[in-house]
Amino acid sequence: MPQYAALIYGEDADWAAPQYAAQMAEYGEFGAAAAQVIQGGAALQPISTATTISVKGGKGGDLVTTDGPFAETKEVLGGFYLLEANDLDEAIKWASQIPGAWHGRIEIRPVLPMG
């Protein structure tokens, strides 16, 4: 079945902090409700922990390492799910139940089929 990544954008949050306990509980509820379609996913640590790297000049070139995210934006990628769905409407239906949909927004991307 096709897979979709539901990328959760919102405030730069430390999901382990007590003030996010209520939101994490919401995610717990979503995880239980959508168990049959969730193929994977993760909550990400805050932007302060991010490192951006690139290799300049092609494969084997110079590694450039910088502190922080790729782009400074108000809304940051806070986590993602890998969902299984028959089509985009089904993916939208599930993604609209992710708490990030009302705390922030969700970008839905079809996963490139491999092999």
């Binding site: 028959n86 089509d87 985009l88 409407d89 079809p110």
Partner: peptide, 10 residues
Amino acid sequence: AAARIPYRVP
């Protein structure tokens, strides 16, 4: 095609 927008009447 890529995102599989369905052919379906809602």
